[in-house]
Design a protein around this nucleic acid. Structure first.
Lengths: 256, 256
DNA sequence: CCTTGCCCCTGACGCGACGTCAGGACCCAG
DNA sequence: CTGGGTCCTGACGTCGCGTCAGGGGCAAGG
């Protein structure tokens, strides 16, 4: 009926030393000891461990976790509900980070000079500061790290030259169709939008139609980008916004 | 042209001590010192700090970050692209966590006895183990923690009794409509589905129509849930899946 | 009966990423 | 010339473990 420490370690993906530690600090004291003084974890202990790991994944200190879990008024469901809220909040935060990175990459390709404050914007905000830890093990193991390295193509300066030329060409083509009076939701304009999206996906990150539509909005709404884009042709940023949106809608309809 | 350490600390949301630390270990050495030996950070230093903070948010150890950033073949855009990939991967992982929590909450309300292995499933998988840290400061400050506490209603045992009675009632009602031959996409069935969704949102977490549709699939596909649901009436789980999906589709169409 | 393995135990020290004083310098304002 | 604010460099403390070191329990095999 009881589980040995090694067994629990394997099941939970923790080390034995970690479980020893949790025992010592009173965070997770196994229900029993065998005659040979071995730790014996009950099912309740395991559920408690799950709670601990979830809170830990969310970044709580072990002491905090202890007070949370030892609160007698808190039911298991209370914890689950709270954990769920925290996880979704964290996801929202990371989406902001992802968007900021997309923003920065665009600024990079456009040679925009963002001020330090603009670049650090994401971190300057109140609560942000520290998350992390995750990778002390995840990237600490050299093999996992090497794998991660391998997956990132090491672009050369020549590559980046080509990237810039390519994106420049796409902008020129879009500026032309705009000047010719082609509506933004015309196939020709949408195809160019799609080419732009493919360009980003190829060189930077997986740019979904949704993200791409967001990019278009940014071009039109963020004056720094508007200025750079409209340098190609007056009103191009608004045109891009429409073309990207039309293309995204087209792709969604194709999907069903 | 240079920024003082306190200034940088405020902009980036870090403490002065942290910047001292990064200087000492050579991770971020300010470009200059004033005659009074004060640190003076250049714009490049600030961009490097931004890179550092992003990698740190993703959980890299400072030593790893140093080797990443000092790789001469890596361009700024290479880092941005890699960071973007890492962030989206992390989001995917957290979505799994959120779904697992939804799963566990359902199991809880149905009084399902999941095995320890099933409960720990999420953590047993290879790479998972440690994330976290985030909250040493975020929840370490007592006020922020208190706020988080306040937002979670402390349900009593009586409350949970009512919750169970309520969900039982909804299931009964749905079983009735099913037995009467009402199709799952009928308004009556969809209204009951919506009541179920509201019930979850009220007591557990913000259950979006999409999540709710996922729940319906789980009822039908996971045999442990199927057994419990079908105990009310044979085939109810499949009926729920259809009703939840129909309701989700209805809500989406209402939105536009 | 004794050895070999394997898993378990308890210290005790080490480390990474800072926090927290302690003691002192600079510099402008009143 | 006395504050107040910001800066500096040690040096020690903390948290969440990792990593030995030294030893026990127990089944299988020689």
């Amino acid at each position: 009926m009881g589980h040995a420490v090694g067994e629990v370690a394997r099941m939970s993906g923790q080390t034995v030393r970690t479980l020893h530690h949790y025992d010592r600090i009173g965070l997770l004291v196994p229900a029993e000891r065998t005659p040979a003084d071995h730790r014996s974890y009950s099912h309740q202990d395991l559920e408690r461990l799950r709670q601990i790991l979830t809170y830990r994944e969310l970044g709580f200190a072990l002491g905090q976790i202890a007070t949370l879990l030892d609160d007698p008024t808190a039911h298991t469901r209370t914890h689950l509900a709270r954990q769920h809220r925290l996880v979704t909040e964290r996801i929202d935060r990371l989406r902001e980070v992802a968007q900021a990175l997309e923003h920065l990459m665009e600024a990079e390709t456009m040679n925009l000079n963002l001020t330090p404050a603009e670049r650090l914007e994401l971190f300057g905000d109140f609560d942000v500061d520290a998350h992390s830890e995750e990778a002390h093990r995840r990237w600490g193991r050299t093999d996992a790290y090497a794998q991660s390295q391998g997956r990132v193509n090491a672009y050369t300066k020549a590559d980046w030259g080509r990237v810039n030329a390519e994106s420049e060409e796409i902008y020129q083509a879009l500026a032309r169709t705009m000047r010719e009076g082609t509506p933004a939701d015309n196939t020709e304009a949408m195809d160019l939008a799609e080419r732009h999206r493919a360009h980003i996906t190829r060189w930077f990150y997986d740019c979904t139609p949704q993200i791409h539509r967001g990019l278009g909005r940014m071009y039109a709404d963020d004056e720094r980008f508007t200025a750079t884009v409209d340098a190609h042709a007056e009103g191009l940023s608004a045109y891009l916004r429409e073309a990207f949106a039309a293309n995204a809608a087209r792709l969604r309809d194709d999907q069903g």
